[in-house]
Amino acid sequence: MNTQETQVKATLLNLLKNIAPDANFEALGETEDIRQALGIDSFDFLNFMIGINESFGVEIPETDYGKLMTLKDIIQYIEAHRT
């Protein structure tokens, strides 16, 4: 993971900490299903998507939500779509 990806990951974890403050982030693997691993519901997931939009300026269409299950998916998506 390069420096930029590391920064993206840190920002994503901060967003998730605001949404699911009790979850175990140290144990969250990069290829793990985030919703299952952290026990966040669909409403929280929407807030996570909004947080990504506001933090990175990346608008994620709903049709892409199914591709964004893991930290790795999201980091790659952000890197590919941000200007």
Binding site: S42, F45, L46, E62, T63, D64, Y65, G66
Partner: peptide, 20 residues
């Protein structure tokens, strides 16, 4: 409204990608 939409999506098994 949200729970109704989510229940439909769960019935379809399509996930949030089908929300629109």
């Amino acid at each position: 409204l949200w729970t109704a939409k989510e229940a439909v999506l769960k019935a379809l098994g399509s996930g949030l990608a089908g929300l629109a």
